[in-house]
Write a protein that binds this DNA or RNA. Structure first.
Length: 486
RNA sequence: GGCGCGUUCGUCUAGUGGCUUAGGACACCGCCCUCUCAAGGCGGGGAUCACGGGUUCGAAUCCCGUACGCGCUACCA
């Protein structure tokens, strides 16, 4: 099996959105498949009818595609091992459950929820180490079973776990793991509604779909003995397991909605780049063994290996994500940024404004080093899109001296006299006025910036003037001189 | 409670018995650059490697125990 080209799968249950932990699991599966020329399968684990969510599968696929995790087989794209929705494979599970019953590895259970409940309560009262099903229905006679079946009494199928065994298996990340079979419950395999539980379905499907490596979250480690028992009962070869460490909240509990955003859609909507999210999540629990921190998907593919995945959970730290987002943003070409900015403008209050590509490109070039998110090309520098309506109070106090208005008027006149000024022309104009007035350039620049942008921070002064253009600069200086008073 | 997994700067991590006075990155602080803010460069603080025992000439690295955290303990996945 190891020599075959690997086939891996991401098997989420459709809860309505893609969890970032799920994104990381999917990513590691994808990277492993691509790295080894293998196949990445998407399988939807929708065997819980109570949890059915409208449109969930579509959302999941959309999020996966957005992140660039394109699967080779699965819903919508098809493949030779379908169907890829477990709800469409019910007859298959039934067949294999029957095979298990025949072999004595599983059995019908007719116990009512009430009996199960009181059994559990009784066991808890006796302070038994663990609450387990008591195999009551394993002792039913053939006649009793036949009668119950014929009478249509509600039933489930349970795994018949042999006692006093040690269940052993290997895991790429955890190495060797052992469980005592006495601690393993006779898990329900087929529910009373005829749907399989995860345990049966995932084993049957992984085998039928020829999955070679099961790469999933650590929350599955405890139920792996059940899966191992099933492989053995069927006489099937076990896949290679790799249980990934969990993603954590800042308080080290399992990453959850309560403590922030968990859906990849949330991050997408907040303006995170898919490259940054992928880069970040890849590094949560894995590294190549060197100091490299900036990766594109292709780089990840070429150096990923399961052997280098960590054992311990990792806190999802927004600060580092933000930094990576800025890094990835700066690596984008101006034309890519232009397209992103244009669609961002459509979502902003400036959507009705008429801005040329040339103008927006100038904004991008001047602001690129100063932003972490696309939307900051708008809201950290609204002065590019509209004249300032108010002026930063602190900056007024610091730089707006009594003789400033007169000086700025002089500068304004100088600028007004320029013909089609370049950035350098503005610079010369300011130098000239500062000399005539005998004041330092800095004494002029700061109030000028305030007058023209309303702020004390931003791109280089002369870039700013050039981008705004002569007429706008003149207008803004006049407006500022009128409205700013100390 | 039981079972399982884990534990290196605040966070992500390097480290697989001597190269380590434990390295890098994010964040933080300072300096340089400079018209501001960034970016960039340089530097700084920050980890008794969870704790306690062993093994060894030598341990973050191997073994045992303890503590703590997390996961599982469903006719959920």
């Amino acid at each position: 099996m190891i020599n075959e080209t690997p086939r891996v799968r991401f098997a989420p249950s459709p809860t309505g959105y893609l969890h970032v932990g799920g994104l990381r699991t999917a990513l590691y599966n994808y990277l492993f498949a691509k790295r080894n020329n293998g196949t990445f399968v998407l399988r939807i684990e929708d065997t819980d009818r109570n949890r059915y969510v409208e449109g969930a599968v579509e959302n999941l696929i959309k999020a996966l595609n957005w992140a660039g995790l394109n699967y080779d087989e699965g819903p919508e794209v098809g493949g030779n091992s379908g169907p890829y929705l477990q709800s469409e494979r019910l007859d298959i599970y039934k067949k294999y459950a029957d095979e298990l019953i025949e072999k004595g590895k599983a059995y019908y259970c007719f116990c009512t929820p009430e009996r199960l409940k009181s059994l559990k309560e009784e066991q808890e009262k006796q302070k038994l180490p663990q609450a387990k099903y008591d195999k009551h229905c394993l002792n039913l006679s053939k006649e009793e079973i036949a009668n119950n079946l014929a009478a249509g009494i509600a039933k489930v199928v349970r795994l018949n776990v042999e006692q006093n065994n040690t269940i052993k298996f290997d895991d790429i990340i955890r190495e060797h793991v052992e469980f005592e079979s006495n601690n393993v419950d006779d898990q329900v395999l087929i529910k009373s509604d005829g749907y399989p539980t995860y345990h049966l379905a995932n084993v049957v499907d992984d085998h039928l779909m020829k999955i070679t490596h099961v790469i999933r979250g650590e929350e599955w480690l405890s139920s792996t003995p059940k899966h191992v028992l099933l492989y053995d009962a069927f006489g099937w070869e076990r896949p290679i397991f790799a249980h990934l460490p969990l993603l954590l909240n800042p308080d080290r509990s399992k990453l959850s909605k309560r403590q922030g955003d968990v859906a990849v859609e949330d991050y997408r909507d907040k303006g995170y780049l898919k490259d940054a999210l992928i880069n970040f999540v890849a590094l949560l629990g894995w590294n190549a063994g060197d100091d490299k921190e900036f990766y594109y998907m292709d780089d990840l593919i070429s150096c990923f290996s399961l052997e280098r995945v960590n054992k311990a959970g990792a806190i999802f730290d927004l600060q580092k994500l933000n930094w990576l987002n800025a890094e990835h943003l700066r690596k984008k070409s101006d034309s890519e940024l232009l397209e992103m900015l244009k669609s961002e403008i459509q979502k902003s209050k400036f959507k009705n404004g008429n801005y040329s590509d040339k103008f927006l490109l100038l904004i991008i070039q001047s602001m690129k080093e100063r932003v972490s998110f696309i939307k900051e090309f708008i809201d950290t520098c609204t002065y590019f899109y509209e004249a300032p309506t108010e002026y930063e109070q602190k900056a007024i106090e610091k730089n707006w001296k009594p003789d400033i208005p007169d000086q700025l008027i002089k500068l304004k006149e100088e600028i007004a006299s320029l013909n089609n000024p370049t950035k350098e022309d503005y610079e010369h104009a300011l130098a000239k006025v500062s000399e005539e007035l005998n004041v330092g350039k800095g004494k002029l620049i700061h109030p000028l910036r305030l007058a023209v942008s309303g702020q004390s921070t931003g791109p280089g002064m002369f870039d700013l003037l050039f981008i705004l253009g002569k007429d706008e600069v003149v207008k803004r200086i006049e407006a500022a001189v009128k409205s700013i008073s100390v």
